[in-house]
């Protein structure tokens, strides 16, 4: 079975002012459809950098990145945008919702992105279905400032899921939430794997990490498996 994602010896060096700093020095990672993986690691260990490489926000300096068997290590930006739209869903710690748009409009942002076009009625139905999946369809017309942190994160999850992505990338999605709300958010994310969506969760929280099928730790630029899940 072809894995959804296969990273082989991925490297990334940050070049800014001063000496170049090696962040990733040979990362190997495989993710199958419906599988969930938690990535743990200290602050500055490169978890978010790894996620930005997987999500095609950035490109690796070396190694190989296969998505569904296709090599996308050096994918051009135009195709990367298409892949971000169709293959990936993103959830961030800071929600990144636009304050001037309603919850439904924030979700619709992933549909009105120049990658295909849905008629207004169909778009609305798709958005409402996504909000329904995370249990906040009744808040569709509310703007973010009127929503709680947990509700805002669920709007962000609905936005990530609205295009039915193959891979869900979550970068510390519970970092700004209390424990109880965080658990609800993890529930919402985890439910996506039931539909065959792969989930990569970057977190500091061991409790949330332990709910994933596999847990890996990023240390010294390489991934070390902490708990191996059973996956066909």
């Amino acid at each position: 079975m072809t894995p959804l994602i296969q990273l082989t010896n991925l490297t990334k060096t940050l070049k800014g002012q001063g000496e170049p700093r090696s962040i990733l020095s040979g990362v190997d990672l495989t993710l199958h459809a419906g599988e969930s993986v938690a990535i743990l690691g200290r602050s500055g260990s490169g978890k978010s950098t790894l996620l930005s490489l997987i999500g095609l926000f950035d490109r690796p300096d070396g190694g190989q990145y296969l998505l569904g068997g296709s090599d996308i290590t050096r994918v051009p930006e135009r195709r990367a945008a298409r892949l971000r739209s169709d293959e990936f869903g993103f959830v961030f710690q800071r929600f990144f919702l636009l304050k001037h748009l309603s919850a439904a409009q924030n979700v619709a942002m992933a549909l009105v992105n120049g990658q295909g076009w849905l008629p207004r009625r169909k778009r609305k139905a798709t958005v409402m279905a996504a909000l329904e999946r995370v249990g906040i369809a009744h808040l569709a017309k509310h703007k973010p400032p009127r929503l709680s942190g947990g509700e805002q994160q669920r709007v962000a999850i609905a936005r990530a899921l609205v295009r039915e992505p193959k891979v869900l990338l979550a970068d510390e999605p519970t970092g700004a939430l209390d424990t109880e709300t965080g658990a609800l958010v993890i529930d919402a994310l985890h439910s996506a794997t039931d539909r065959g969506c792969g989930l990569i969760l970057v977190t500091h929280d061991h409790a949330h990490a332990n709910r994933m099928q596999r847990v890996v730790r990023l240390a010294d630029g390489v991934l070390v498996t902490e708990r191996q899940g059973v996956f066909p």
Partner: peptide
Amino acid sequence: LRRAVGTPRLL
């Protein structure tokens, strides 16, 4: 954010 959800640079 718009780029992250797949909006091309040109758009």
